[in-house]
Structure formats: C-alpha cells, structure tokens
Nucleic acid binder design. Sequence first.
DNA 1: CTGTGGTTC
DNA 2: GAACCACAG
Length: 292
Amino acid sequence: MAKFRQNHTKGDRGSAKGAGFFYGKLIMFTVVLVTLALGGAKMLSGLSLDDLASDGEGSTIVNNNERYYLPTSTTGNIAHHKYYSLSYNDRHEIPEWVAYELTAADLKVKNVKRHRRFNVDTAVKGKSASHGDYINSGYTRGHMAPAGDMAFNKEAMKETFFMSNMAPQSKEFNAGIWNKLEQQGRDWAYDNKRLFVVTGPVINDIKTWIGKNEVGVPKSFYKIYLDLEGSEQKGIAFLMPHADSKRSLKDFAVTIDEVEEVTGIDFFGELMEDDLENRIEATINLRDWDFN
DNA sequence: CTGTGGTTC
DNA sequence: GAACCACAG
C-alpha cells in the first residue's frame, strides 16, 4: 500500500517548459529504483519507460506530483501529461487506457468553465484523430478522462481535451449511462477521499471507423475504480456495451480480471502485493460500493 | 453533468 | 481563438 503514494507535495510541480526532461530523468530513475526495491534482480540501467511498458512490466509516472504504477501498454505508446497518463493506439487513434487519481480535495475545488477547443496531443506517437473525423460522423467525442474530473484547474481540464483522450461515443451513450457512471465515480471519490481511475475503450472490438483518419468506434468501454485508502481496500470494474441503457450500473459491474481478459492489459500488477491484487481483481464486492 | 451549434469581438 | 449564450439528453 505504501508503494502507491510517494512523498511528493502538490507545491513542487515543475514549471511548464523544461519539465519534461527533468521528469523523464526522474521517472527513469524511480523506475529503476523501485523495480529493484521490489525484488527484481534484472539489470535495468538504460531501460526507458517505454521499454518497461512494452515488456509488460508496467511503469511508473510522477502524476499530480505523486508516483503511480500504471497499467501495462500493449502499444508502448505512452504519454505522461501533468494530470493524467495514457497509452495510445495509433491504428484506431484512440487510447487503450487513461489513468489518473481522483481525489475528494480536487472535487471540492470550485468548477472551472468547460473547455471547448480540442487539441492534437503531440506527446503521442503516430496518427492522430482530428476534429473533423468526428464531425457529421454520428458520434461525439467522448472523454476517457472526463472534463468533470479535472474541473479543479483550468490546465487540467484543457489536458482532457487532447484528441488522444477521446473515443467516438454515441451521444445517447455519452450523455446517458456513461455519464451516470462518471458521476457515480465522482461520488465515490468524494466519499473514499482518493480513487485511482483507469478508463478506456475495448480496442480489439471495433465496430466501424469514422472520418478521413478512420477513427475506431469501439463496441464497448470499461472503467475501473480502485480504492486503496479506506479501511477496506477494494476495486470495481465496469464493462459497458456502446449503447445507452436504463439499467442499473450494478448490472455492468465485472471483476478487474474480466477486463484484463477482454483487453489484454494488466492493470495493477505492479501496484499491489500479489495476494491483495488477486483478491481485489478477482472479486466484485457490490456491497462495498454505495450506489446512487 | 455529457455533448452540440451559433454569434460576437 | 476565446468567450459567450442557447439548446438537447
């Protein structure tokens, strides 16, 4: 558990320019240090984050000035932004996962106005979807890291409007049950003080492509909430068909293991002790989560 | 909250 | 381009 959060403070964030190099070095250093500390006897000097990720080792990131262990990447195309990290699939031009922390403290901050402009994410490699790909496609740009989760800070919200954070969603789904799930997550973060959130489309199940850049339209989406702060450490996952529904969110709850099987991603392999990981990932404890 | 389009400067 | 209002779910 102590491995989840490190002793960084919110005040010592690097300035915008030049921070990338510093963080790059810092991340590489911490990856090596932590991996060795975890008992890995491998020679890791010189390995980059992407090497580790594509080796299925997971990775770490200084995000919100705290260090997190991230899911494995099937593409090795990881981008670390100031307020979230993502693994990008440039074939379909959508992320395979977007990960960040969601805290009660952030949710208490007065909301900033919704950002409008969508920007190409220069931190990911390969093709990017454009604004135009979504226009008149019948699909809206669905945030994986929701703007509503990053409303504590103008810059954080702006980051959620990177095209790399988008996946095509029908407006009914986006504003419907998906929105409901996001709101439920904010309520849980408020109650549990701090959640770790991983969200994405199911990449290997694309139903069609839109726009000149042929952006993949997923058949389903997942979202995982992990709570390591409370007395009862717990996790819950949701797997949702890409269609609006009037059913209860409970009907879409699955184990983290199930999402891992469907996506081929190892979400918390480096995050927890094996026995804790196994218990949390194999179990759905609906009673531990207070549904609205 | 999730999105959209249109207008103004 | 950014800021603003208005609309729909």
